[in-house]
């Protein structure tokens, strides 16, 4: 059975697809898809640079395994 709302939904989906394609085209044109890999480095800075571990068990320096005697719980 035909329901006019189906037409509306079909048109809405079509419009969404067209809009998405346009957005993608716009993004590509304005260079938003360049240098994708650079973004992965934003979580690092001078103080916590690449190569700097930032976690450890209590009592140990970051990036090192705690010595047995360092364990705070006997």
């Amino acid at each position: 059975m035909y329901n006019p709302t189906y037409t509306f939904i079909a048109v809405a989906i079509g419009a969404a697809v067209v809009f998405a394609l346009f957005a993608f085209y716009y993004a590509a044109r304005t260079g938003q898809l360049q240098n994708l890999e650079e973004g992965s480095k934003v979580i690092f800075d001078e103080k916590e640079p690449v190569g700097q571990p930032t976690d450890a068990f209590p009592g140990a320096q970051p990036g090192t395994v705690p010595a047995k005697s360092d364990s705070t719980k006997s």
Binding site: F19, A23, F24, A27, Q32
Partner: peptide, 19 residues
Amino acid sequence: NRMPLLLTGIFLTFFSAWL
């Protein structure tokens, strides 16, 4: 610069499924 793309995408993907 990438915000319009991101926000539109977040909305549209979800809206399509909602429909």
